[in-house]
Design a protein around this nucleic acid. Structure first.
Lengths: 205, 205
DNA sequence: TAAAAAAGTTGAAGTCATTCATCTTTATAG
DNA sequence: CTATAAAGATGAATGACTTCAACTTTTTTA
């Protein structure tokens, strides 16, 4: 039976990540020491570093977990978007925003974004950037789906449009997490106000 | 004579900042220890912390110094912009970019941006954000100047247009500093390609 | 000018992320 | 089943930012 070690490894990694998601949210990324996570996960400090290269790495893993779920939810919307360009786009974007704080706090998002900017060449930075790319690709996919359904003008470059819209929603999300006082509802309202004029521009006349 | 202490203080602060600009550029922000700066500036570690709250604070002070110069150079362009919407806008934007690496390295910019995102509520974060605002305002001022000269359509909202253009040039600058291999020329070319179509859209027919 | 007060400097100590040589657990070979 | 090898866990040690109580220098007061 050679599966015991594998099972123990997977279990330890899961426990560390679980401890991180919970503790980072509760106490704030800064305030949590690796020692705290090790204690909760019932491993030693050294073991945490066997599974994650740095403290920031653990945070990026939390973000990745969240974004994977966001992508899965988004996939369903892209496969079967509501009628109307504006409704379809907003449905996807708001799905992103509504999921974004399920496991992560604003502080965690800020820290993750900062890490990705500070060290773009490290595995961390690349991983965050890759998640960004996949989200941008999903927005593009939605635009293509709407073109296929004849709702968005076919003469427009779907990739350029998708990237533009993603950059915009990403920028608005940055403003959202920068301001602890801003509510999800305010974010939703703002993006809705911005999206409707764009939607009418790109919709088939 | 009560000016001695004042003079010594100003001198110490200047020496610390000078040491930081030089050493951060030469060795990289991470690699430089407060102890190193203290030694170069001929003060103790504790004294550095009397003038700057954190290591990041020193970096933001470096950025502020650079941006003040950029704003001064930009002011001249806004007061007397070259003929033509595209030429005027590019003149300002490229002036920003060309000045940006005079004292700061890409790594310093990345780190400063990361700091500002990570801790938006701290004096540091606010200060960085305020510099951003002043740059955005200057772009808006140029748009207004071009409207006054009858080169840009007067029915357009100068503030919205200025903010949009600043966000865009800022985003492109972020991509520039994220990629150590990207040259200033590549950045210039890219922004030129983007700016020309915008310029023709907003110019008076 | 001398003493007292105010302002500022100092560097050792504290904290926390990270590393690494040692030890323990699991898997394999005889 | 025992011995060897491989994999992984451990926590004390390291290094860097930051703090703070004691010490100096400058200014004010008498």
């Amino acid at each position: 039976m050679s599966g015991l070690r594998e099972k123990q490894k997977a279990d330890r990694e899961r426990r560390i990540l679980q401890a991180a998601v919970t503790k980072f949210r509760a106490d704030g990324y800064r305030a949590v020491r690796i020692e705290d996570l090790a204690e909760i996960a019932e491993v030693s400090v050294g073991t945490v570093y066997n599974y994650y290269q740095t403290k920031g790495d653990i945070l990026i893993a939390c973000v990745a977990m969240e974004v994977e779920e966001v992508l899965t939810a988004g996939h369903h919307i892209v496969c079967n978007p509501p009628r109307g360009v504006s409704a379809a786009l907003l449905s996807l974007i708001i799905s992103y925003y509504d999921h974004s704080l399920e496991y992560l706090s604003k502080e965690m998002w800020r820290t993750a974004m900062a890490l990705a900017i500070e060290a773009p060449g490290t595995p961390n930075g690349r991983r965050y950037f890759e998640l960004d790319q996949r989200l941008a690709a999903q927005v593009t996919d939605l635009v293509i789906a709407l073109q296929d359904r004849g709702e968005v003008r076919r003469d427009l470059d779907a990739r350029a449009l998708g990237t533009l819209m993603f950059n915009n929603l990403n920028q608005m999300f940055l403003e959202f997490v920068r301001d602890d006082a801003m509510t999800l509802k305010a974010l939703r309202d703002q993006v809705a106000a911005q999206t409707r004029p764009i939607a009418s521009l790109i919709a088939v006349s």
